[in-house]
C-alpha cells in the first residue's frame, strides 16, 4: 500500500515505516492490509481493539517455547499463515506502552525480512484517546500460505559474542538510570528478579528508551530525536550501534527510532541484553553513571 503522506511523518528518514491513526482509520478493511496488536498486557486486546485487528503475543507466539530464541522460519510461516498474513501484505502493528511491544514485534518481523511492516504512531493509547472505534470481536481470517523464510539475524540482531567484539564502539543502554548505574534497592522479603550483577556494558551510554516518545505515546520529532542521539550523545547515522535493555523489548523501540526515524544504517538489537550479560561469567561490567571502558570497575 502507499505510504501515509501525512506531513508529521515526512521528515523522518523512513516515513514509510509509520502510519497515523487517521491513515489507519481510512484504510481499515482494505485488502492487503493486516493490523496486529502487540501488548505487554496479554489481556488488553480482549478488552477491545481496533476493528479487524488480530492479536500477536511476543511471548507465546514470537518466542520459541523451549530455547531462548525466536520462532524459526517454519514457525513464523505457520504463525503468519494462521493469521492470514501474506508475504506482500502491509502489516501495521500497534500496542500499549508507547508501542514498546509493537516495536519488538516489528523487529522480529524484520528478522524474517517481511518487507512492509509499519507502526501506528502513538499506538493503542492514541487510537483510544481520539475516541476511535474499538470492538471485542475477534476476526477469523482465512488462512494464507506464508512462505518459510530462513531467519536472518545478522543484520539487526546482536549476540553476546558480537557485543564483546563490539566493545569500544557505540552502545546504547535504554534501561532506567538505576538499572544503568547498577544501583539496587534491596529490602528483606522484596524479591529481585533478573540478574546477578548490576551495571552496564562498558562504553554504553544511557538513553532511556522513553525519551524518544512523547507524553501521548507518539514518537518525538526528528529534530528532537537528533538533539538527543546526535547532539547530546554524539552518535552518527553511519555508526555501528548496538542497543540493549533487559530482554531486548525496550531496545527494539530505540532500534526503530535510530534505524527508521533517524536513518542509521547499522543498528543491532542485543536481545540477550542484561538478563544475559548481567548473569554471564567474566564479561566486563561498569557500574556508576559514566560509560567507562572494559577494565574499569
Amino acid at each position: 500500500m502507499d505510504r501515509d503522506p501525512d506531513t508529521t511523518l515526512s521528515l523522518y528518514a523512513h516515513p514509510e515505516r509509520l502510519v497515523t491513526t487517521a491513515w489507519l482509520a481510512e484504510h481499515l478493511g482494505e485488502p492487503g492490509l493486516v493490523v496486529l496488536e502487540s501488548d505487554e498486557d496479554v489481556l488488553l486486546y480482549e478488552t477491545g481493539h481496533v476493528p479487524g485487528a488480530l492479536k500477536i503475543d511476543w511471548f507465546t507466539e514470537l518466542n520459541d517455547q523451549v530455547t531462548r530464541d525466536y520462532v524459526d522460519g517454519a514457525g513464523f510461516a505457520a504463525l503468519m499463515s494462521a493469521k492470514g498474513v501474506s508475504r506482500d501484505d502491509t502489516v501495521v502493528i500497534y500496542g500499549d506502552k508507547s508501542n514498546w511491544w509493537a516495536a519488538y514485534a516489528l523487529w522480529v518481523f524484520g528478522l524474517f525480512g517481511h518487507a512492509d511492516v509499519r507502526l501506528l504512531d502513538g499506538g493503542r493509547a492514541a487510537w483510544l484517546a481520539e475516541g476511535r472505534p474499538t470492538t471485542t470481536e475477534t476476526p477469523r481470517p482465512a488462512p494464507s500460505s506464508y512462505p518459510v523464510i530462513e531467519r536472518d539475524d545478522a543484520p539487526i540482531r546482536a549476540f553476546k559474542d558480537d557485543v564483546l567484539d563490539h566493545l569500544g564502539k557505540p552502545l546504547v543502554d535504554v534501561r532506567s538510570p538505576q538499572e544503568y548505574t547498577g544501583e539496587r534497592t534491596h529490602m528483606p522479603d522484596y524479591p529481585q528478579e533478573g540478574a546477578l550483577r548490576g551495571g552496564h556494558v562498558p562504553g554504553a551510554v544511557s538513553v532511556p528508551w522513553a525519551r524518544a516518545a512523547r507524553e501521548d505515546g507518539r514518537f518525538r520529532s526528528r529534530a528532537e530525536l537528533e538533539a538527543i542521539y546526535l547532539g547530546e550523545q554524539g552518535l552518527s547515522p553511519s555508526d555501528d550501534v548496538i542497543a540493549y535493555c533487559r530482554i531486548g523489548e525496550r531496545s527494539s523501540h530505540t532500534w526503530f527510532v535510530l534505524t527508521y526515524l533517524l536513518g542509521f544504517e547499522h543498528v543491532r538489537n542485543y536481545d540477550g541484553s542484561w538478563t544475559e550479560w548481567g548473569n554471564a561469567v567474566r564479561v566486563p561490567i561498569v557500574t556508576g553513571a559514566e560509560p567507562g571502558k572494559a577494565g574499569d570497575r
Binding site: 496479554v42 511471548f59 507465546t60 517455547q65 522479603d189 524479591p191
Partner: peptide, 21 residues
C-alpha cells in the same frame, strides 16, 4: 503458564507473597 507465559505469572506470585507478609 502456556496461555500467558510463566514470566507474567510472577506478578501473581509477588502479590501472594506480599499479601502473606
Amino acid at each position: 503458564a502456556t496461555a500467558i507465559s510463566p514470566l507474567r505469572l510472577n506478578g501473581m506470585a509477588g502479590m501472594l507473597f506480599r499479601i502473606k507478609r
